[in-house]
Computed example of a mutant assay.
Amino acid sequence: MPAHVTILASRRNGTLYIGVTTDLPRRMFEHQNGLISGFSTTHGVTRLVYAEEHARIEDAIAREKRLKTWKRAWKLDLIEASNPDWLDLTATGLA
Protein backbone atom coordinates (compact mmCIF):
# COMPACT_ATOMS: atom_id res chain seq x y z
CA MET A 1 0.00 0.00 0.00
CA PRO A 2 1.51 3.36 -0.98
CA ALA A 3 2.00 6.08 1.61
CA HIS A 4 2.11 9.83 1.12
CA VAL A 5 4.14 12.54 2.78
CA THR A 6 2.13 15.74 2.72
CA ILE A 7 2.68 19.40 3.39
CA LEU A 8 -0.43 21.39 4.20
CA ALA A 9 -0.57 25.17 4.50
CA SER A 10 -2.98 27.71 5.94
CA ARG A 11 -2.28 29.99 2.95
CA ARG A 12 0.62 30.92 0.69
CA ASN A 13 3.71 31.28 2.91
CA GLY A 14 1.49 30.60 5.93
CA THR A 15 1.64 28.00 8.65
CA LEU A 16 2.89 24.60 7.45
CA TYR A 17 2.02 21.10 8.63
CA ILE A 18 3.96 18.00 7.53
CA GLY A 19 2.31 14.60 7.85
CA VAL A 20 2.17 11.08 6.48
CA THR A 21 -0.81 8.92 5.54
CA THR A 22 -1.72 5.72 3.73
CA ASP A 23 -5.16 7.10 2.78
CA LEU A 24 -4.69 10.57 1.31
CA PRO A 25 -8.32 11.30 0.34
CA ARG A 26 -9.61 10.31 3.79
CA ARG A 27 -6.90 12.25 5.61
CA MET A 28 -7.52 15.40 3.56
CA PHE A 29 -11.25 15.12 4.23
CA GLU A 30 -10.48 14.97 7.95
CA HIS A 31 -8.18 18.01 7.79
CA GLN A 32 -10.52 20.09 5.66
CA ASN A 33 -13.54 19.35 7.82
CA GLY A 34 -11.85 19.78 11.20
CA LEU A 35 -12.51 16.18 12.23
CA ILE A 36 -9.16 15.73 13.97
CA SER A 37 -8.42 18.13 16.79
CA GLY A 38 -4.83 19.28 16.96
CA PHE A 39 -2.29 21.49 15.22
CA SER A 40 -3.90 21.59 11.77
CA THR A 41 -7.35 22.43 13.16
CA THR A 42 -6.03 25.02 15.61
CA HIS A 43 -4.00 26.79 12.90
CA GLY A 44 -6.41 26.39 9.96
CA VAL A 45 -3.99 24.28 7.96
CA THR A 46 -6.22 22.69 5.33
CA ARG A 47 -4.63 23.35 1.92
CA LEU A 48 -2.65 20.44 0.45
CA VAL A 49 0.29 22.15 -1.27
CA TYR A 50 2.76 19.26 -1.60
CA ALA A 51 2.58 15.47 -1.68
CA GLU A 52 4.97 12.71 -2.55
CA GLU A 53 4.21 9.01 -2.80
CA HIS A 54 6.34 6.24 -1.31
CA ALA A 55 5.95 2.50 -1.86
CA ARG A 56 6.57 1.71 1.81
CA ILE A 57 5.18 3.44 4.90
CA GLU A 58 8.60 3.17 6.55
CA ASP A 59 10.13 5.26 3.76
CA ALA A 60 7.37 7.85 4.03
CA ILE A 61 7.84 8.14 7.80
CA ALA A 62 11.59 8.54 7.39
CA ARG A 63 11.06 11.28 4.78
CA GLU A 64 8.51 13.04 7.00
CA LYS A 65 11.01 13.08 9.87
CA ARG A 66 13.73 14.50 7.60
CA LEU A 67 11.45 17.23 6.24
CA LYS A 68 10.48 18.28 9.75
CA THR A 69 14.16 19.05 10.46
CA TRP A 70 14.51 21.25 7.36
CA LYS A 71 14.74 25.02 7.53
CA ARG A 72 11.51 26.78 6.60
CA ALA A 73 13.10 28.29 3.47
CA TRP A 74 13.96 24.81 2.18
CA LYS A 75 10.36 23.66 2.70
CA LEU A 76 9.06 26.70 0.81
CA ASP A 77 11.47 25.95 -2.04
CA LEU A 78 10.28 22.34 -2.14
CA ILE A 79 6.64 23.43 -2.37
CA GLU A 80 7.28 26.09 -5.00
CA ALA A 81 9.34 23.75 -7.20
CA SER A 82 6.26 21.64 -7.91
CA ASN A 83 3.42 24.01 -6.97
CA PRO A 84 4.54 27.63 -7.57
CA ASP A 85 1.00 29.00 -7.20
CA TRP A 86 0.35 27.13 -3.93
CA LEU A 87 -2.80 25.59 -5.40
CA ASP A 88 -4.80 23.25 -3.18
CA LEU A 89 -3.92 19.89 -4.74
CA THR A 90 -7.16 18.34 -3.49
CA ALA A 91 -8.89 20.52 -6.10
CA THR A 92 -6.73 18.93 -8.82
CA GLY A 93 -7.96 15.44 -7.95
CA LEU A 94 -4.73 14.31 -6.30
CA ALA A 95 -6.48 13.68 -3.00
Rank of each mutant, 00 (worst) to 15 (best):
R66T: 12
R12T: 02
E64T: 11
A51L: 08
I79S: 00
G38E: 08
R72P: 05
A3F: 15
L35N: 08
T41W: 12
P84Q: 03
L24T: 09
R56C: 06
N83M: 03
Q32T: 06
S10L: 05
I61M: 13
E53F: 09
E58D: 10
H4Y: 10
D88E: 05
N33I: 02
E52G: 01
I79C: 01
A73W: 05
I61S: 03
E80G: 01
S10G: 07
G14D: 11
L35R: 10
R47P: 00
D59E: 15
S37E: 15
E53L: 05
P25S: 06
K68Q: 11
G19Q: 13
P2M: 12
L35D: 09
R27G: 01
L35V: 01
E53K: 13
E52P: 06
G34S: 15
R26L: 15
R27L: 02
A51H: 14
E53D: 07
T46R: 10
I57D: 00
H43M: 06
I61P: 01
T22E: 15
K65I: 06
L67T: 01
L67I: 04
N13Y: 14
S10D: 08
T90S: 10
G93A: 11
E80Y: 02
K68M: 08
T22I: 11
A55C: 03
T41G: 13
P2Y: 11
I79A: 00
L67D: 00
A91D: 15
A51S: 15
E58Q: 15
T92P: 04
A91Q: 10
D77F: 06
L24K: 05
H43Y: 14
K75T: 05
F29L: 14
P84A: 07
N13L: 11
I7G: 00
H4F: 12
P2T: 13
T15L: 12
R66M: 05
Q32R: 12
H4W: 11
I7A: 03
W74T: 01
A3K: 04
L16W: 12
T15Y: 07
S82P: 03
M28Y: 02
I79Q: 01
T92W: 14
A60P: 05
W86M: 01
T6N: 09
S82D: 03
A9E: 03
A95M: 14
V20K: 10
V49A: 00
T21Y: 09
R66I: 10
Y17Q: 04
W70Y: 15
S82H: 06
G34R: 15
V45I: 14
G19W: 13
R56L: 09
L24C: 03
Y50N: 00
Q32Y: 10
H43R: 10
D88Y: 01
W70H: 05
A95G: 14
D23P: 04
T69M: 05
I7H: 07
D88V: 03
T42G: 02
S10E: 07
